[in-house]
Amino acid sequence: MNSMVEKIRKMFYMNSCISVLDNKQVLVENCKSLLECNEILVRIVAAGYIVEVWGRGLTTNNYSSGSVMVKGEIQSVSVTKRGERK
């Protein structure tokens, strides 16, 4: 069932796309909401996942709907399936 849902998501481009540029920028496309955005942590709700961007001096820009660009000194990007977070 889960693989079926994954296939449909892939077919209709509903997956989240995360692009990391060096340690300066992270672009998360196809996301739903911004949960938190402080200087060290940005939490983004993407399709089925929560993307956490850790770093220093982080700022968030949402130039177009459904996408978020995080700028600053990126230290790590973690992706956690929603509902499985410990």
Binding site: L34, T59, N62
Partner: peptide
């Protein structure tokens, strides 16, 4: 932040 996202308010340099 949720409202900003829901209402498509374009922001730059957001930092909490």
């Amino acid at each position: 932040l949720k409202l900003i996202f829901d209402e498509n308010i374009t922001c730059a340099g957001l930092s909490e």
